[in-house]
Computed example of a mutant assay.
Amino acid sequence: MKTALIIRHVPREGVAGYRAPIEAAGYQVDRIDVCDPDFSRADLVAPDLVIMMGGPMGVYEQAQHPWIACQMRRLARRLAADRPTLGVCFGAQMIAAALGSRVYPGGTREIGFHPVTVHDPDSPLRHVVDVPVLHWHGDTFDLPAGTQLLASSAAYPHQAFRRGRNLLALQFHGEMDEDPRFEQWLEQGPHDIAAAGHTPCTLRAAHETHGPRAVTAARAMIAEWLTGLA
Rank of each mutant, 00 (worst) to 15 (best):
Q62E: 14
I51G: 00
Y27D: 02
P105R: 10
A145H: 15
P144A: 13
F161P: 00
A92D: 14
T85M: 06
A80D: 15
I51H: 03
P84E: 02
A92N: 11
A195E: 09
M72Y: 00
E61H: 07
A4F: 10
D33H: 10
G228N: 15
I222D: 01
V29P: 01
A20C: 12
S40A: 15
T3N: 14
Q64M: 12
W67H: 06
R74I: 03
G146P: 01
V215D: 00
M1G: 15
F90D: 08
F39C: 11
Y18C: 09
L143W: 10
G164P: 09
V131C: 03
Y156V: 14
Q28P: 05
P66Y: 13
A154W: 03
I7A: 07
P200Q: 03
P157W: 08
L226F: 08
E183D: 13
R181V: 09
A154V: 13
G26R: 14
R41H: 13
A151P: 10
V10G: 04
S123Y: 05
Q159F: 04
W136H: 03
A194M: 09
A154D: 15
A76Q: 12
S123W: 01
A230F: 05
A81D: 13
I6F: 05
P11T: 06
T117D: 14
V215E: 00
G54R: 04
E187K: 12
A160R: 02
M1I: 13
M1N: 15
M176Y: 06
G55C: 06
D139I: 01
Q148W: 06
G197D: 05
I6Q: 08
H191K: 12
H207I: 00
W67Y: 13
A42M: 10
D139V: 05
L49C: 05
D177H: 07
A145V: 15
Q148E: 15
Y27I: 11
Y156L: 06
L150W: 08
E224W: 02
D177E: 13
T202N: 07
D120P: 06
M1L: 10
P84W: 00
D142G: 14
V133W: 02
F141G: 03
V103E: 12
K2L: 08
G106C: 13
W136R: 01
T202W: 01
